[in-house]
Write a protein that binds this DNA or RNA. Structure first.
Lengths: 257, 257
DNA sequence: TGGGCGTCTGAACGGTTGTTCAGTCCGTAC
DNA sequence: GTACGGACTGAACAACCGTTCAGACGCCCA
């Protein structure tokens, strides 16, 4: 189902002042915030310029007047979201003293409209958000390094790889927030952050105690190496680039699709 | 950018037989596979019926003739993907003896067109894939239980919660495969599975050795509880449901968006 | 031989999309 | 007072969308 018209603000005229909700700022920035909200909620293709204009209480050609095209509006959204993210980052850095509990959860909740937009943007791809993604990786690397200096986080053989993996895991789980809501009864992007504690407890367990027994895993790998050797013992040599010895699901295995 | 016309198979006529690629099956199933491929590659809204028809070498009305509507085609795709997933699952179960190394990686690669479709389907939401998601959770729970019985995986306080978290993390990271490709140089859904070993090594480290020092974490939580008490020591009682004491980014904090 | 039926097509339809156009309103500078 | 320029609008535009329609083709059964 395609999203058509949002709940218009009703301020259909030009200078309708004291309205509920956001302080009815400049029309240009109202358009931008409406676009971020609707894009984040429904995706880029699903939301029409007319829906954005109606949500901002203006006409569709005005959107073009200010942002030249729908693609221009989207890159403006990208830039604005990146800028907002940068601001909230520096605010959290300025926060001295012991962090309150669940600071991260509350920060997620307070910026959930930005996160929803990022989720849509990362899902849709496009090079506009790559720089933001890199910065987020760098930030989480910084956080992990600081936590490591406090002894809260263990050292890693490859800190950057670990930071990337943890970030991909965390943000990726956020992209599945609808399924997360079905499994845990609460979405990290709606609902009360307090209700997320069961989920956080499960994440904490995965991060505080190992899931895989490293010793057993190493034994298993060694026995499988021997198994692979046994399989290949009548073949003189592996042709380089040949497919692996695994008889994975055979259908479609040779096509280029 | 909207995807318009795929690389048509060239079999523009009706009975063009021996073509490269898939064995030019029934037109009806050719439409279904084209739809799964294109939907998975570009998303639902981005792909038009005409593009699917061109990719399958048929006309657009024939798609309607077989599947009634675009929505009908999508639910048919959902069902087909779920069925294919079920089949490949039972195949992997029938696989006896020691698993070859990187079995999971090769299985991902062999079924990457299905995975790409699932990613788009989960990102777009909709209730059609919920059942499949639940089954995947159940499957991973089974795998983890079996690995636990082998001593390969440590026990958990809440095995189901842990299985959900691990699955959300793994599949969520897959949804960010474009960013993953930028960070690790290889995508799990294209390219050679062998090149994924650096990524797998990082994941393995996160799963074999704890990231967070549980003892330090507990100390931190206790000190923060004391901190929270100090903050509230002049307030007689917390109003139930009131916002937390965290001064998270102030802008927009009161609105309903 | 003929009639029905499923497959499949080109042409066309109504609707929505992003965008353009001509023009109105309004605050500001001269 | 008037010319100007930006904000903003309704009407209109071409393009594309999913879908419908009428008909052509080939195959099976009588």
């Amino acid at each position: 189902m395609v999203y058509k018209y949002g709940a218009s603000r009703g301020s259909q005229g030009h200078s309708a002042g004291g309205n509920a909700g956001p302080p009815a700022a400049d029309a240009r920035s109202r358009i931008l915030e409406s676009a971020i909200d609707l894009f984040g909620e429904h995706g880029f293709q699903e939301v029409s310029l007319k829906a954005i204009a109606a949500h901002a209480g203006v006409s569709a050609p005005l959107v073009i007047h200010h942002y030249q095209s729908k693609a221009g509006l989207r890159t403006a959204c990208d830039r604005h979201v990146a800028e907002e993210f940068r601001k909230s980052k520096t605010e959290s850095v300025r926060f001295k003293g012991p962090m309150p509990r669940n600071y991260a959860l509350d920060a997620i909740y307070a910026n959930r409209h930005l996160l929803k937009y990022m989720i849509q943007a990362f899902a849709a791809g496009g090079p506009n958000m790559d720089e933001l993604f890199d910065r987020m990786i760098e930030d989480s690397l910084d956080y992990l390094a600081e936590a490591e200096s406090l002894g809260l986080v263990h050292p890693s053989k490859n800190p950057r790889h670990r930071a990337v993996v943890i970030f991909l895991h965390s943000f990726g789980a956020l992209m599945l927030h609808k399924q997360m809501e079905r499994e845990f009864g609460v979405s990290p992007l709606d609902g009360d952050p307090k209700d997320l504690l069961p989920y956080m407890a499960a994440v904490l367990e995965v991060h505080t105690q190992p899931v895989i027994n490293a010793e057993k895993y190493r034994e298993l790998m060694e026995s499988q190496e021997a198994f692979d050797r046994d399989i290949h013992n009548d073949v003189p040599e592996d042709a380089p680039g040949a497919e692996s010895a695994v008889p994975a699901t055979p259908q479609r295995s040779g096509t280029d699709r």
